[in-house]
């Protein structure tokens, strides 16, 4: 053990000619370029080369978006059942709970953004690719119902690979459940802002993510319904690089604005205030 230690010291001492110190690097999935990981993280996970907005944990999103200590979580302990008795589903989730500290793929609650009260939902793609099963559906439906009852605005940060396969048809029905809850909130005059983050696809795109009064996307994030490989398989050709990116969806008319992460908090605050949500009522 000591010998190993001295080996390292020797190498360092000798000018590191054999083994230079390499800082951990981030390889951008969009531009494929390398940047120091520390730089990427300093920018809250934005690629310094191409401005791709990388994936954040729900916790990180809360800390950069919401007023300090304002977040009060709903249903923090809600956990999934196994509606179609899918083999190893419960075990897989147990592992994920340990490694991510999450109970499922969305965190919901109330908070303030620069003083404006709001109901927020934040998806976390580390938990089964942010897929929508019973818990995601139920938490989102409850969040909208709470907002409807209390005349509050809703801001949803979406990130999802789509349906939770392990819940079969029950997963599909969450699309109807969440869309219905959004509609009732809308019919009562509530403001709903969607922030599409990387990646927003499948059943989430085909339900509550596409129903915002105002739809915002972060730069260069993936937004679509069908997976790229599925489409390439159908049309038997390669798709252009920018296909299904935020900028593409903006050009096609499905995104109102593309907003950088460092400006998100102030844009959301302005939009909330423009709709009269400026008094703290929570």
């Amino acid at each position: 053990m000591f010998e190993d230690f001295f080996d390292v010291v020797k190498k360092r001492f000798n000018g590191g000619s054999e083994e230079e110190y390499k800082p951990p690097m981030f390889k951008c999935p969009r531009c494929q370029q390398l940047s120091p990981l520390s730089r990427y993280e300093e920018l809250h996970r934005v690629c310094p080369k191409c401005n791709y907005h990388g994936r954040l944990s729900a916790q990180e999103r809360i800390s950069i978006t919401l007023d300090k200590d304002s977040f009060k979580e709903f249903d923090a302990d809600m956990k999934s059942g196994n509606p179609i008795d899918f083999p190893e589903y419960m075990e897989k989730q147990e592992q994920l709970r340990e490694s991510t500290g999450l109970n499922d793929a969305v965190v919901t609650g109330t908070a303030t953004i620069k003083g404006s009260p709001v109901v927020v939902g934040i998806m976390d793609s580390r938990y089964m690719m942010g897929s929508m099963g019973s818990v995601v559906g139920e938490k989102i439906a409850r969040a909208f119902e709470y907002a409807t009852e209390n005349n509050m605005a809703v801001v949803m940060f979406t990130a999802s690979g789509g349906a939770r396969m392990q819940e079969g048809i029950v997963s599909l029905m969450q699309m109807a459940k969440t869309s219905g809850a959004v509609k009732l909130h809308s019919d009562k005059g509530g403001l709903y802002i969607t922030v599409l983050t990387d990646p927003t696809t499948g059943g989430v795109t085909a339900s509550f993510a596409s129903l915002g009064d105002i739809i915002i996307a972060e730069p260069k994030v993936l937004i679509g319904f069908a997976g790229r490989r599925v489409i390439e398989g159908t049309i038997k050709q390669r798709l252009p690089e920018d296909f299904q990116l935020a900028e593409f969806m903006h050009e096609k008319g499905f995104v109102d604005m593309i907003v950088e992460r460092r400006k998100m908090r102030s844009v959301l605050s302005h939009l909330l205030k423009l709709h009269g949500y400026d008094k703290k009522e929570v």
Binding site: M175, S179, A206, F225, Q244
Partner: peptide, 14 residues
Amino acid sequence: EERGIGEAIAKNLA
């Protein structure tokens, strides 16, 4: 995708 299949389905659900 270009014509918003996700939006079209979501709209019908709602």
